[in-house]
Amino acid sequence: MIEIKNLHKSYKMGKNSLHVLKGINFNVEEGELVSIMGSSGSGKSTLLNILGMLDEADEGSYTLDGVPIKNLNEKLAAQYRNKFLGFIFQSFNLINYKSALDNVALPLYYQGVNRSERMERSMAYLEKVGLAAWAHHKPNELSGGQKQRVAIARALASDPKVLLADELTGALDSKTSYEIMDLIQQINDEGRTILVVTHEEDIAQMSKRIVNLKDGVIIDDRKITQVRAIQNV
């Protein structure tokens, strides 16, 4: 599903340049649930943003579902983001003036789905994350956990090949975190490929594989036996 080879990324700040990713190589198969770990500043978010096509690598190759992601024009990049990728952020990034339902429907709007179908499908996803009753509430009327569920529903709405989540439980207490992880595991059980960035060991243990980053290189990559989140709820 994901193949990256020799990925490099530096941030330029004035005269200085900070080399953040120093040659990352790894593959993710369809249906995997991978957690990316590492200390703060190790480049986890940078890597995920590149995988999510929110940012671009300086060097190396990235192939997503057999499509080389390289020098795409803006329009094509937008279409790939829409079709292939679903993003979940630590800070939710919901549009605050739109209801939960309208937020979920947004990727479908950019797919050109008509309004009534958009609403119907978005409602189904909200039901899936257990928030049908909150469909018409604005984000500021929802708890952190609920917001993250809306964000997950939104990420799923366009039926992407890969879900990318950056510290998706970072702003939540542990009970809510486990509920969210339970949802993530269910979605993964249905066969969807998911990558989560986390620095919490217990969250990482709920995935099926842990990739450890340090100073911009992978120092460890191993499969684990998944801890089911439902047991901790």
Binding site: A78, R81, P107, Y110
Partner: peptide, 8 residues
């Protein structure tokens, strides 16, 4: 946000 969701 809109771009991340696929807005051209």
């Amino acid at each position: 946000i809109r771009k991340a969701l696929g807005a051209e």
